[in-house]
Design a protein around this nucleic acid. Sequence first.
DNA 1: GATGAATGAGATTTCATTCAT
DNA 2: GATGAATGAAATCTCATTCAT
Lengths: 196, 196, 196, 196
Amino acid sequence: MKRRQILDAAYTVFSRKGYHRATVDEIIALADTGKGTVYNYFVNKEQLFYTLIKERSAGFEAELDTIAALAEPALDKTKKAIRVFLEFYVQNADLWRVLMHEMRGLGREEPSSFTEAEREKYRERFVHTIGTLQRILQEGIDQGTIRQCDVHKAAHGLFSVIVMMVFQGFVGGEQDSIDSTANSIADIFMYGIVNR
Amino acid sequence: MKRRQILDAAYTVFSRKGYHRATVDEIIALADTGKGTVYNYFVNKEQLFYTLIKERSAGFEAELDTIAALAEPALDKTKKAIRVFLEFYVQNADLWRVLMHEMRGLGREEPSSFTEAEREKYRERFVHTIGTLQRILQEGIDQGTIRQCDVHKAAHGLFSVIVMMVFQGFVGGEQDSIDSTANSIADIFMYGIVNR
Amino acid sequence: MKRRQILDAAYTVFSRKGYHRATVDEIIALADTGKGTVYNYFVNKEQLFYTLIKERSAGFEAELDTIAALAEPALDKTKKAIRVFLEFYVQNADLWRVLMHEMRGLGREEPSSFTEAEREKYRERFVHTIGTLQRILQEGIDQGTIRQCDVHKAAHGLFSVIVMMVFQGFVGGEQDSIDSTANSIADIFMYGIVNR
Amino acid sequence: MKRRQILDAAYTVFSRKGYHRATVDEIIALADTGKGTVYNYFVNKEQLFYTLIKERSAGFEAELDTIAALAEPALDKTKKAIRVFLEFYVQNADLWRVLMHEMRGLGREEPSSFTEAEREKYRERFVHTIGTLQRILQEGIDQGTIRQCDVHKAAHGLFSVIVMMVFQGFVGGEQDSIDSTANSIADIFMYGIVNR
DNA sequence: GATGAATGAGATTTCATTCAT
DNA sequence: GATGAATGAAATCTCATTCAT
């Protein structure tokens, strides 16, 4: 129960402050618990952070995999994927901004007790997500609905547009806003900006 | 002269370590100067960082404005802009990654001695850059070569694809790599992925 | 039963780590019990430690008293005492090393909840042990086999040689090693190093 | 200058409290300085401690070497060495008690930043000191004034008696007390306790 | 203008101890 | 009697910043 409170408080604080500016003191104040309790459940600040990430992304990844497995035209699946992505990132924008910054090779100096190997696990998780997107696009090429292109780059491009739209605050939390943005993205990504 | 050395050293250290992990000690070691000297030229660590940003982006912004002012078809200008963007971000990838993380508009918490007003100036600089891109696209619409779309979103989308390509390490420093990526981006952005 | 397990585990951990580096967590892990249980039987970490000491030294003290009471020449009793001392300290080297460090009479600072009065009891136990040695020596003087000397200092000197030999790792656990060292000590202590 | 104050304060606090119970806060309070200053001069608490040891023992070691090099009968040199040892340990009793405890193999768990290799250096220093004593004794054997015996054990034995006399508080700081104890030790060590 | 010794607020982490179940 | 989740005081260490020279 305390574990839950700590995770929730940590989510709020990390999102608001970023990893470094967030302090354990602030987290426990919000969680209404003692400092020692945090260290009963998590080996250190970094592992608390990554536990949060793992927990928050589990549902999203499952949903994305489900979409990829559907027996539908790839273009439809792409649209659905865009919407799921958007929804997830809108919900978790702040935390993910932090993650993306921290995950970078920055500081190869082996900070605290989190090994590079552990960190690698999260990088793989990210690669897997983009990979799912990529597989959907490849399917479209095989079906002839998507033209030949570098699917790896395309998937990354699509991903980055989505993420940026969220991080730049283009999308709010309301369903309308998400729908509209999802349509805009899908539209440009699929048909380009050129008039013909 | 000392000022120059400090800025160069700061560039290296911030790029390598990120804003928080970078220490003034490390910067002065690299700059071969004393700690007090840093505080003669810069009011604090944060202002040193932003000075760096301002200085590094000046040339790029000018170049982008030049392109926008050219008397050429908007589509050609778009392609040129994409290349200039890519070149700049490839060169300054690490530092800008740091900037984007730190700038995250939220800052509800009034961090250190840098005022929200000061910070706003940098946000404006960013807005201006995207704005230039946006104006080029609008020109295309006016000329009939680009179809009706939300130029604000489109400009942001284009910008984000570029940035992500760089941040994700898709582009190396060589001209070839930049050319190829610029073409990929332009291709998909202009014509979409759909086959027809 | 739990009490026994805790004491045994505590013995192992204190011996291995010293008083401060030993943690209650490690002790209960080894004792296969709960943390609260420790505090049911012992008022705190310090009292657990001293209980251990008291328990371990009981047998040894009895044995030494028995030797002192024998109706034999004092020199023979001295030799026997040296061997009993050696055996005991070899067996308990690590724990006693810790004890000697912690007991250092100074304790001007009233450490934790253990009162100076409590601590004094353990000092007395130590004094008693040396006292027994001293009485044997005095007996020798009375019998004329040991020459006039400061028995108090001599007893302490003998004691310290024994302890150091053990602490410095001169004696292993095997009977041979103990015999040989006991002989060396007795030899020098009784006849000195001077050639004549 | 601050460095000197810190070392002096550290000497006092470590002596009084032992390594673990001594706190940096207490040291700086006594040294009348800031916490950061300690860490400007010493990499951590452990290195501060060892710096202290190194500094305090330098003079003593030189003096002992001088005695060993004298062109005098070994028995005279032994007496002199006993007095120098006594003087040194009386002066530094508390700190050395701490050192002897900490230096033990206890806690092979690699505490803090001080490597086992570094620690080894201090063990060697200790071995060297005993070695000097041992060489004097061997000289006596060669000269025929000391009888055949295990010089290694004998040197350790002598050393331990000296140390214990000090640690047990047999010797005070006055010259008289040192003289008397030095004589007692020399007497028993050289001629034994047996009457003849 | 240049310097770097001095500083202390503040961060993370440890661990003996309590107490409700 | 046994338990272990919860606690928080206290410890070590970092690092941006100041200021006298």
